[in-house]
């Protein structure tokens, strides 16, 4: 695969004196699904948050769809429109109904007409399997349903790229599958995705590539089969032995 849509070159980030990202380079092709895993505090989350500039990087270069991320507000807003993001804590807006959560950005950012946005929202709710919840508030939904709404909300902006920041870590075991199914279906439809997850089954089946983070660096990056059967780095082997044989 060529034609990269995301290119990160030697990205560095400090939080005060703490060096969180220490030269991360990653290139993602159109339609590729990259799973990122690694111990907590290794910089996975910080890295994907630099891709839509929720965090600013301090050295290196990030290009998304040919646009370089700089302090230029116009660029940042243009890029955020192309990137959908799903969070561990869902982050749905509790004062708005499910339908209003999904139509908010299309109406205010894309300037879509309300009727059109609602039609789109209903299609997306259909796609994630909960059209009957449209008029409820997020607080009335289960965790799995909330996360599916969050996915629909991100998709409503018709993004080219989707970022997932541990989308199933806050869910009960029974609800994890319903969210992973939606994500799998999304990957099949050709969406470019970067997914931070510890669901190794998902990584094995859906990912095109797995990148392993440790101490602010990508230690190892390989196709799933190779990653699981012949990990090269000692740190990767340790991580896999802990996560697969507990």
């Amino acid at each position: 695969m060529s034609d990269p849509i995301i290119v990160a070159e030697d990205v560095h980030k400090w939080f005060g004196p703490f060096h969180a990202l220490r030269g991360v380079s990653l290139s993602v092709s159109r339609g590729e699904v990259v799973v990122i895993c690694g111990p907590s505090g290794s910089g996975k989350s910080t890295f994907i948050r630099t891709i839509n500039r929720l965090e600013e990087h301090q050295r290196g270069r990030i290009l998304v769809d040919g646009i370089e991320l700089t302090n230029d507000l116009k660029n940042i807003e243009a890029i955020r429109r192309e990137i959908g993001m799903v969070f561990q804590q869902f982050n749905l807006f509790p004062h708005l109904t499910v339908l209003q959560n999904i139509t908010l950005a299309p109406i205010w950012v894309r300037k879509m007409r309300r009727s059109e946005a609602e039609k789109l929202a209903m299609e997306l709710l259909e796609r994630v399997g909960i059209p009957e919840q449209a008029h409820k508030y997020p607080g009335q939904l289960s965790g799995g349903q909330q996360q599916r709404v969050a996915i629909a909300r991100a998709l409503a902006m018709q993004p080219k790229i989707m970022l997932f920041d541990e989308p199933t870590s806050a869910l009960d075991p029974e609800m994890i599958k319903e969210v992973l199914d939606v994500m799998g279906e999304l990957a099949e439809s050709g969406m470019t995705m970067i997914v931070i997850t510890h669901e190794m089954g998902f990584a094995r089946e859906v990912a095109d590539r797995i990148a392993f983070f440790d101490e602010g660096r990508i230690v190892e990056s390989a196709e799933p089969v190779e990653f699981f059967t012949q990990p090269k780095h000692e740190r990767t082997k340790l991580f896999l032995s802990q996560i697969l044989h507990h």
Partner: peptide, 12 residues
Amino acid sequence: GHIDAARALGLN
């Protein structure tokens, strides 16, 4: 997180 989500959606 709500502010993050709003920014990620492209809201100014």
